[in-house]
Amino acid sequence: MVRRTRRAVVILYRLENIVHKRLALFAVAALPLAAVAAPETFSFDPLHTSANFAIDHLGLSTIHGRFDKFNGKVTFDPAAKTGSVDFVVDTASVDTNDRDKGSRPRSRDEHLRSADFFSAAEFPTMTYKSTQVVYTGDTPTKIEGNLTLLGVTKPVTLTIDRFRCNSATASAKERCGGDASGKIKRSDFGMKRGIPAIGDDVTLTFGFEGDKE
């Protein structure tokens, strides 16, 4: 009886060892996968990132503008096909290449900062937060998210027109970049001044680069 019990204990002990070893082996084998699957975070490089917009003027031409101050982060995980984009724009930094007001009392950029358009004193920032990043294969191709402008939040989809990463080298971190674009109706956000002489449809374009953190 005692022998049988000892034998059973030994068998159980061996089984436990085998299970532990296998689990340990499985965990070791899974480590590289986990490392690959970890989401990668990139901070926008302001020197190589731009937030731009284009809008119709009198049906004659397209006025192009940009925001000089912004910051944000991108994370993406190609293995899990997930990611996120957070982008904060300083609305007072709007720039439509109209710095010299000449004989006019105010420049176009000053007007854009007023309550007629961006109301920068009341709404100093415009934000974009993604809700989903859509992949085609291993490449992110679409960002679905919410744009908050003038206190109004609306869903806006950005198409990633191009996305590429350069591998890290001895002298540089891994770097990714791309171009994204989308369209909004500014009246949806309560910015109605000047419609239709100044278009309602606004094209947003972003060029972005960032180093892996």
């Binding site: 105010r106 900062r113 000047g194």
Partner: peptide, 11 residues
């Protein structure tokens, strides 16, 4: 009104 437009506000 006039001081407002000179100050960049059509509103």
């Amino acid at each position: 009104g006039i001081a407002g437009i000179v100050s960049a506000s059509i509103g």
